[in-house]
Design a protein around this nucleic acid. Structure first.
Lengths: 189, 189
DNA sequence: CTATTCTCTTGACAAATGTTAGGAAATTCA
DNA sequence: TGAATTTCCTAACATTTGTCAAGAGAATAG
């Protein structure tokens, strides 16, 4: 649980007792490549800290899988609005490699929110950071070409290209897999 | 302040004393068309509930103004990550029509967060809802054409087309103003 | 009211990306 | 290992969208 412990203590100043109490609410699980952490059309009851591996969040539109985000080690993943509002989830969350996750249920999350103010603070920061990230992505889509988004992703998350099928990366960038092939070809020349 | 009052009481169950206390932290201001609620490269110290009018949030990239979002009556607007983390804001927030706003400063926001648990709850819901909205927008950009995004916006926020310069709407949809013209032309035929 | 500025439209052309179809390469499974 | 499946690449062509240039129309300021 060290990576999770670090993730929390790096963002909020919390004493050891509270931190241990928070960590004790998480359960460590392993998800195999191809298996699902969450199915769409169900209500999301958990959120996970990714210790190792990659998971993608996707929905199907017009018969095609659209990947909105790919989570990697050190990140949290959940179907946020489903988790918060207990509405049916739009998203599937599937492991694209074998994963080691630390999972907290909604119940325990609510429990911590009441008992550990620092957890609430951490959760708020997490949410605000996620918002900022998403905002950057949305902004990028408004003023960059596929080429530029590809270059940026390659620079910022090169490991993604080694561990995740390119079709999912293409989808996340907002282009067809064939177009991604072209961009990669340009790179080599 | 009735619209703000309703907005809060519709989302969280709060007694009258607390509600009045919360409302008393807001200050009503008027912003004229073209004036700025926030300039980029400054640190955002306030957030606003829009009672009437329209404001756009934009940044400049490659010499062009890119509008990420246009807020209308009943919505809150702020440069979220700047407001939360007190970092320099990327966004300009400018009135595109005369506006009536109810404004709360960061100080008073923090004060309420400590004194009025219901405010914190409301703020959390607001953040989660904003996240969900942004997420939908990002998803739409991954699998829809400009035409489809135009149609959807026209259906969901028709008033926007009557009150906001089309160039800003085009930017928000992610297309050139000339392209928006073409889409509008198609509509008529 | 008039001049100025801002906004919107149009058309021709260029560039980027999607689509379709086929096959090569890599991976997985039995 | 060998067959089946998945993933990736390529090429030709279609479509969408961007860019540039010009001008019409609307809003605004003096």
């Amino acid at each position: 649980m060290e990576p999770l412990k670090d993730c929390i203590s790096n963002q909020v100043s919390v004493d050891n007792t509270s931190l241990e109490n928070i960590l004790s609410m998480f359960e460590t699980i392993h998800v195999k490549k191809g298996d699902y952490f969450l199915h769409s059309r169900t209500i999301c009851q958990k959120m996970a800290f990714i210790e190792t591996g990659y998971l993608r969040m996707y929905d199907i539109a017009d018969g095609k899988e659209i990947t909105l985000w790919i989570g990697s080690s050190g990140k949290f993943i959940t179907s946020l609005s489903s988790f918060v509002f207990q509405t049916v989830s739009q998203w599937n969350i599937q492991a694209v490699t074998d994963c080691k996750l630390h999972v907290i249920t909604r119940e325990k999350h609510l429990h911590l929110s009441k008992k550990e103010p620092k957890w609430l603070e951490f959760d708020n920061l997490l949410l605000a950071r996620s918002f900022a990230l998403l905002e950057q992505g949305a902004f990028a889509h408004l003023h960059t070409t596929a080429q530029e988004r590809f270059d940026a992703l390659l620079k910022n998350e090169p490991e993604l290209f080694l561990n995740v099928p390119l079709q999912h990366i293409a989808s996340m960038i907002g282009i067809a897999p064939e177009s991604l092939s072209r961009l990669r070809k340009n790179l080599k020349n």
